[in-house]
Design a protein around this nucleic acid. Structure first.
Lengths: 128, 128
DNA sequence: CCTTCATTTAGAAGATTTCGAAAATGATGA
DNA sequence: TCATCATTTTCGAAATCTTCTAAATGAAGG
């Protein structure tokens, strides 16, 4: 019955044997400080977790484009393109400009592109 | 899973009125250079697009932890925790160390944490 | 007003993700 | 060997995401 595992604390109602109560609580209280920011960061990454949406952001790097031109760039239906644009716009990364019947989209934040390129470079240069 | 016909045959037969052929083609050829890297970047973001997985990475910032301690930090079942760990490990962001019956996980890349914190700061400081 | 056109929204189908329950794996020690 | 334990894998259900078609919206010009 005695091994390295049993040396660790088993407190209260927890039934999992290897539970290092103090260590886990310390980490939990540390992470608790990020309680609000973590889901926000996760949502941010979730939004960028799509080749189509990344393409939109890169396509707009040079300047604004109308929805149907973006649809051609993405090789996607206009409806689906509009849907993806809305997702990016709702989070404040894109702005739209109405010009008669046409709607033009542009980047709202230069920081986003910088972060994107920074992450891309990190991916490329990491050792595998 | 069929594509819109008019979008597939963009050269000459395009029926969408506002199609700026030259502009779109220029952007397409630019994006084409990122053909391989873009899905990779999207997969990277997809992986980070989860509070649970972000918590795992931050929890491991201070040092290695066993699966069941991580499960307590995440307030998740051990099985589900193991599943998330595998996703991160398969992409090379985590390493595991076997010690008897126990398995300890640790970060494999310091660059990942740096990127994470950089993105977090970008989110916090951007104008809304 | 009526028609046309670019875009957006609604609804549905199909794919993917998440996570618990249970079975399987692999190590330890009697 | 046998039993036990930490972890992993498998399976299935629920939730979410993607993208289509079709209908709705809103602007421009008869």
């Amino acid at each position: 019955m005695k091994n390295t595992v049993s040396l660790k604390k088993q407190q209260g109602t927890c039934t999992v044997p290897c539970f290092d109560h103090d260590k886990v609580n310390a980490i939990r209280s540390t992470l608790d400080k990020e309680r609000d920011r973590l889901p926000e960061l996760a949502d941010f990454y979730k939004l960028l977790g799509s080749s189509k949406r990344l393409k939109i952001l890169l396509a707009l790097a040079e300047g604004e484009l109308c929805v149907c031109d973006l649809a051609h760039v993405l090789e996607l239906s206009v409806a689906a393109t509009s849907h993806q644009l809305k997702l990016l716009r709702d989070k404040g990364w894109l702005r739209k400009r109405d010009d008669g019947k046409m709607v033009y989209y542009r980047l709202h934040s230069a920081d986003l592109l910088k972060a994107l390129k920074s992450d891309l470079k990190m991916l490329e240069t990491r050792l595998r």
